[in-house]
Design a protein around this nucleic acid. Structure first.
Lengths: 258, 258
DNA sequence: AAGTGGTCTAGACCACGAT
DNA sequence: TCGTGGTCTAGACCACTTG
């Protein structure tokens, strides 16, 4: 690229297609969008390195600083992970450090012990109305329902009722879930190419119903923490809705507000 | 400043006092620390503008870009607010937009209505052992206990039991609390110069005790969301611990995990 | 028009990791 | 030693707000 005296940006229209619109988008935002699209398209898989900043700058014909700012934001959004001296990598749910970003339950005494899972069932059914609405499915579309219990140090603590977008998880069975070692979201991303980016949660206190009470070995009516989660992938597309019921007798849900 | 060929940074030691240590701190981090100290010292009050980037660059004898990066991080941490064309301002709890950062309870149906408060008491007492530990007080030091109920659309929904660092809130009375219009944290920052920066929370489901049940007009044993919050000011100094009990029958605690 | 933050560039050098 | 991300600078221009 010719080293023009810094007027070269005018040559790059903010949005080549959209002309005349009042929308203005900084170059680095456009680059960010292009990188996101490549991530979405699977050009670079979770855990892999993306091209170096210099390479990307050449590809997009912008300066390294502009690519840098785009990557900075994607790293802040946990889509990418920077590693000095090594490169920039696509984030993955398989990493130790990232595991507990979505599992916010902590034991009262110190560290997280091992977590055991037991799957109750995994059925393919027509999505109920509320699930269809949340996952943006047409009524009657297929959905996957998974129910499981999580055990901390052998004690049942969490009952999860999970609903997945039917079209994206073809062939998911209770067996594959049970066989897989590691976080469920890691399985989703390696086996189905669906990467959970962020989630919105609604927390409430509820009384244990008879079925849940039995599963968690509690008396009916026992206070449980209800966590309704809507999980989203690239482009804020909803792909999972789940409701967890947590026994918070010796665990708590940690949160930071800042 | 002499336009040296970019070796000028070597002239600025990473940490003037700490010599020989293996610690390396980027310039912008040091600038960030200096700005934070000025905020802490009250050189610029909440709501006021801080000096322009150019002025700060001149004051600290670094480039504007370096100041910029420092301010970027402080803005990301909600200590500063940037406003294009106007300047950079010290964040304040009085702003509309920021109010609901610490009040995470939302009604099931749409928007937040008006919130009424009723203070039950505001007493100055010796800090109990657990409170003293949380607020890093010596046992026997003074603490302030505030208890209140929050009403949404006339209905009691929240019971708060609040403990404040005694030394920082001299002269706080139930009357001043009642008279003040606006968020409690806004009062703390304008009247006592104590600005809450962030908070750590532990959430649980519990059964309503008789006293709380009476205050919230519920049956004893009703499931309540318990929110234990430790609030921190500059330098992560703890200044408030509170326990809120929320009736989540028609409200929920919203959270985003990303 | 002047001042502020926001974007973009080009280039130099530093810190880190692999070779 | 080389390639990667990380820091820092200097300067130009853009977008927004105020006088």
């Amino acid at each position: 690229m010719a080293p023009l005296p810094s007027s070269s940006l005018s040559d790059v229209p903010a949005s080549p297609s959209e002309s005349g619109g009042p929308a203005f988008s900084p170059l680095y935002q456009q680059i960010k969008g292009l990188i996101t699209r490549s991530l979405q398209a699977g050009e670079w898989k979770p855990g892999e390195a993306i091209p170096s900043e210099v390479d990307l700058a050449a590809r997009f014909r912008v300066s390294q600083g502009t690519v840098r700012k785009a990557i900075d934001e994607l790293a802040a959004e946990n889509l990418l992970v920077r590693r000095q001296g090594k490169g920039t990598f696509v984030a993955t749910h398989s990493e130790e450090k990232i595991q507990y970003r979505f599992l916010r339950l902590m034991p009262d005494d110190g560290e997280q012990g091992s977590v055991d899972r037991k799957f109750i069932d995994c059925r393919r059914v027509r999505a109920p109305a509320d699930v269809a609405r949340a996952l943006e499915l047409k009524s009657g579309d297929a959905a996957l329902q998974i129910r499981r219990v999580l055990y901390f140090k052998g004690q049942p603590v969490v009952f999860d009722d999970i609903w997945l977008h039917g079209g994206l998880f073809k062939g998911l069975t209770a067996e594959r879930l049970s066989d897989y070692q590691g976080p469920m979201y890691a399985l989703f991303e390696t086996e189905f190419g669906v990467r959970m980016i962020r989630a919105e949660e609604k927390l409430r206190a509820v009384a244990a119903d008879p079925a849940t009470a039995a599963l968690l070995n509690l008396a009916e009516g026992y206070p449980l923490l209800s966590v309704e989660r809507l999980s989203l992938t690239y482009g804020d597309k909803p792909v999972e809705i789940r409701r967890g019921l947590y026994n918070t007798a010796s665990h708590f849900y940690r949160n930071e507000v800042s």
